Amino acid sequence: NQPMLDHARTRMVDDPRITWQQADAQALPFEDAQFDAVACQFGAMFFPDRVGAYGQVRRVMRLGGHFLFNVWGAIEENEFADEVTRALGHFFPADPPRFMARTPHGYHDADVIRADLHAAGFRNITIEPLDAVSAASSPYEAATAYCQGTPLRVEIEARGGSLEEVTRYVANALGKRFGEGPVSGRIRALVVDAA
């Protein structure tokens, strides 16, 4: 989206080889065979039509090009997101917000990803897990990031909860599991290379 591009533009040295352009991944506004590589960082899980978007990527790639992207692993393999989702389930037991499990962590099955890429015409596909550690200066900082800095916020507000009260509740749950000072938790992503 344009605000993200504007932010990126401020962080990059001016380079005449870089053009910043907002585009819809499902209708890329580029001619066929224009790029040697296409990269997408934690975006594929948001595509309404993944096969269609992958087909667009394949169309704009040159022969021998690579499509490199990553998606989050299963929510159980991402400790902060998992604990946040559990805590919200306790806070809203009748209608728990499931955004994290449904969307960012909902496209983690390597067989499904491979089948979608095959359907779009890709044949050489590697999918590798990548494990790392996520860190925050406090449980409250991590809770704020999830509850107020992601689309999860919309689900919380739609249920009528006080955003600050919910954030504190989630921070408390994170503190019980990970400690009260600086916290860290295991995260996993899948890194995909398709040609």
Rank of each mutant, 00 (worst) to 15 (best):
R58K: 06
R59T: 14
R59C: 15
R59D: 10
R59G: 04
R59Q: 09
V60L: 11
M61W: 06
M61E: 04
R62V: 10
R62D: 12
R62Q: 11
R62E: 11
L63H: 14
L63A: 14
G64Y: 14
G64M: 13
G65Q: 06
G65V: 08
G65L: 08
G65W: 12
G65Y: 13
H66D: 06
F67D: 01
F67P: 02
F67L: 15
L68N: 09
L68K: 03
F69L: 09
F69N: 00
F69Q: 02
F69A: 02
F69S: 02
N70L: 07
V71D: 00
V71W: 01
V71A: 03
V71C: 05
W72Q: 04
W72V: 08
W72F: 04
G73K: 02
G73N: 13
G73Y: 07
A74I: 04
A74F: 06
I75D: 01
E76N: 11
E76G: 07
E77M: 09
E79I: 13
A81K: 02
A81Y: 01
A81L: 11
D82Y: 07
E83K: 14
V84L: 07
V84K: 11
V84N: 05
V84W: 01
T85M: 07
T85R: 00
T85F: 00
R86F: 11
R86M: 13
R86H: 15
A87R: 01
A87D: 07
A87P: 15
L88Q: 00
G89I: 02
G89T: 13
G89Q: 04
G89E: 07
H90C: 10
H90G: 03
H90M: 12
H90W: 11
F91W: 05
F91E: 12
F91G: 00
F91V: 13
F91I: 13
F92C: 07
P93A: 12
P93I: 08
P93D: 12
A94R: 03
A94I: 11
A94Q: 15
D95M: 06
D95Y: 10
D95L: 09
P96N: 05
P96M: 10
P96T: 04
P96R: 03
P97L: 15
R98V: 02
R98K: 14
R98M: 03
F99T: 03
F99D: 01
M100T: 01
A101N: 14
A101H: 07
A101G: 07
R102K: 10
T103P: 03
T103Q: 09
P104Y: 09
P104W: 13
H105R: 08
H105W: 10
G106H: 08
G106D: 06
G106Q: 08
G106Y: 06
Y107W: 14
Y107K: 09
H108G: 03
H108L: 09
H108A: 14
D109E: 11
D109H: 02
D109V: 12
D109I: 05
A110E: 15
A110P: 06
